[in-house]
Write a protein that binds this DNA or RNA. Structure first.
Lengths: 135, 135
DNA sequence: GCGACCGTATTACTTGACTAATACGGTTCA
DNA sequence: TGAACCGTATTAGTCAAGTAATACGGTCGC
């Protein structure tokens, strides 16, 4: 059974996305294995103190990513095929960054500048989120 | 006088940010020169069919970036110096990467992985161009 | 000085994202 | 079969961002 132990009580961003991240991290870390039973929406909602629909939203997203399967009325299970999961995520991420790489190179930016810019913006984004997005 | 001719009628994101981008692009492209008079909030609002406060929000942001100056009761003028041009271009580029940073962080990626991915994609894009490929 | 225009501040409306409340039908197993 | 659990759908409440409505005081040219 997939465990939600260690789920950060406070965190960044919407709850349902934090759930998605948590499971994805578990998959990436090997904590979640193929065929693992996922706790029901109601159980997770009780543990986290949120509404079952919030968990449902997360589970739906995970299902669309191919990381779990659900059948109406029955239990849900994790689907972990490391190659396809990693490949799919890497493709999405590469797509995102690829557009920017092309745009930045076209504008005459150097690789080192782009790296530094990414690093700085990453930290800023992190701090902004920790602060609650005000400025 | 800075012109809003060619302002895209439809576009992505909030209106005030599109205005900011439009002016930044003009500064970066040299269309807007130093000391250029900026059309008043009311004039721009009439041309674009939005509320003066929407323009005000954009102008305020441009002022904070050092791209224009405003005095209560008087006209507003563009400030174009080598520094401000560089600032405008940097802002445009930062916006590009900023979107990716948010997307990648939202997908649960670590900073180190993002840096590595950017580095790899940059090299690939470089090599693709050397080979004379087009997209 | 005074009218016309300017930038600015305050307040309220609209919309979408996020979450919750509630109800419905399917599956499982004694 | 029926009780207990499951996933799912519909609807409503909450909150922040974006935009609008309105009013205020400053600047400028006649």
């Amino acid at each position: 059974m997939v465990s939600f132990a260690g789920f950060p009580p406070e965190g960044e961003g919407p709850i349902y996305l934090r759930i998605v991240r948590f499971i994805r991290a578990g998959v990436a870390a090997g904590t979640v294995v193929d065929g693992d039973e996922m706790p029901s929406r109601r159980v997770v909602s009780a543990v986290l103190g949120v509404n079952p629909n919030t968990v449902q939203k997360a589970y739906r997203m995970l299902e669309e990513e191919g990381l779990m399967v659900s059948r109406s009325g029955a239990k849900s299970f994790a689907v972990v095929t490391p190659e396809s999961v990693e490949a799919a995520r890497a493709r999405l991420q590469a797509e995102e960054i690829g557009r920017v790489v092309t745009a930045l190179r076209r504008s005459g930016m150097e690789k080192g500048d782009a790296m530094a810019l990414l690093s700085r913006l990453w930290d800023e984004d992190e701090q902004a989120e920790e602060r609650g997005e005000s400025e």
